Computed example of a mutant assay.
Amino acid sequence: MKRYIFLFSILKRHRATRHLSGNLAQRIVKLLIFLLILVCVNSLALVVFDGMAVGDAFWLSSTTVTTVGYGDLSPSSWQARAVTVVCMYLLAITVLSLLIAETVDWRVFVAEKKRKGQWEWKSMPEHIQIINTPNEDAERYLVRLVKQIQITPELAGLPVQVLTRKYPDGLPESLTRLHVLHRSGIAEDADVLKNIGLDSAKYVIILARDANSPASDSSTFDILCRIRESNESAIIIAESVSDENKARFVRYGANVVMRPVRAYPEMIVRFLAHPGTEAVLENLFEYNQDFLSRIEYSFENIYWKDIVARSVAGGAGTPLAYINAQGVQTNPDPSSLCSGSAVISMVSEKQAVDADLLSKCLKV
């Protein structure tokens, strides 16, 4: 055992002089093959010169090369002993030490590459690819985004990979705990984009590089076109700073286009899982489109399904919630009996909805 430790220390000093970026995997395979050849040669010598059974010969060679040395078997002829000295003591033990050292190097090398986002995943299953990160408070934003992805039934279980140059020394601990994969680089680099497994991505989220700069849309458009060249089936959600570019993004392959909303990353997940809902929600923020209106009207003991049906039929909008002493009751059960002081409905610009109109609808 002392001999093994001594050899390992020598090999550690030797490895420190080499460049670590060489093909460690190939060296490990070559060393393993060479080690197996030495064990087989020694076992063959034991069979030929000492008349050992094949199993015993292989057992003796294995215990010798690993320096275990149980002592239950040993070579008896001078020829077998000579082969054992050369193959096992001089060569195989050294090769095994090299193999262990190279394997440790390989594991450290791979772990460091993955941590810094430089590892190229050869086989990436269906996954969610996030491209770019917000300029400010990126960690908090990504944590909330990934957590929402992981609890959404349509998206849960899919690996999440982030392409960004924001974390060259590795993702923050809060993201690694969520098992987020990391790729360091920019999507405008064709080589980087080609090596992140986009061809097998099921969902792609393209965040605006700068949520306040319309110039970010040019970068988003370039990335969108590159993605569609390699993956025609992925569902892509792209942020557009300028409303004028929304139609253009859709024309070139985006399934969902939305304004950057940094305060609510959960919205991206909802839109990703249910494309089309972004148009409904964004219209609510424009007063010349559909909007939410609070209608002050007290009512008692009316089924929610009747409130909705009568309001829609009477042109009083589409009720989404009502307010009572406990607060806002959103999307109640249709069969629930409701009493409240106001109704929140989605109405259009053309509808003039007030308490009188709602009263007429509900008293029918």
Score class of each variant (00 low, 15 high):
259 R>N: 05
259 R>M: 03
260 P>L: 13
260 P>A: 08
260 P>I: 10
263 A>L: 10
263 A>P: 00
263 A>S: 15
263 A>M: 11
263 A>K: 12
264 Y>D: 12
264 Y>F: 15
265 P>H: 13
265 P>R: 13
267 M>H: 10
267 M>E: 12
268 I>M: 08
268 I>S: 01
268 I>W: 00
268 I>G: 03
268 I>R: 10
268 I>K: 09
269 V>H: 08
269 V>N: 08
270 R>M: 13
274 H>S: 12
274 H>K: 11
275 P>C: 09
275 P>M: 11
277 T>M: 14
278 E>M: 07
278 E>G: 03
280 V>P: 00
282 E>R: 08
282 E>P: 02
282 E>G: 04
283 N>Y: 03
283 N>W: 04
283 N>V: 09
283 N>P: 07
283 N>I: 08
283 N>Q: 15
284 L>K: 03
285 F>E: 14
285 F>I: 08
285 F>V: 13
285 F>R: 14
285 F>G: 05
286 E>F: 11
286 E>M: 04
287 Y>D: 13
288 N>C: 12
288 N>V: 06
289 Q>L: 15
290 D>S: 08
291 F>E: 06
292 L>Q: 08
292 L>H: 02
292 L>F: 05
292 L>E: 13
293 S>E: 12
294 R>I: 07
294 R>Y: 00
294 R>P: 00
295 I>L: 09
296 E>D: 15
297 Y>K: 03
298 S>Y: 01
298 S>G: 04
301 N>S: 14
302 I>E: 06
304 W>N: 03
306 D>W: 01
308 V>C: 12
310 R>V: 04
311 S>H: 00
311 S>F: 01
314 G>Q: 05
314 G>M: 05
316 A>M: 03
316 A>I: 06
316 A>P: 00
318 T>W: 07
320 L>A: 09
320 L>D: 00
321 A>V: 03
321 A>L: 12
321 A>G: 09
322 Y>G: 07
324 N>K: 02
324 N>A: 05
325 A>T: 09
327 G>P: 09
327 G>K: 10
328 V>K: 14
330 T>H: 11
331 N>Y: 11
331 N>Q: 06
331 N>D: 11
331 N>F: 13
332 P>N: 08
332 P>F: 06
333 D>K: 04
334 P>S: 09
335 S>Q: 03
335 S>G: 05
335 S>P: 00
336 S>K: 01
336 S>Y: 00
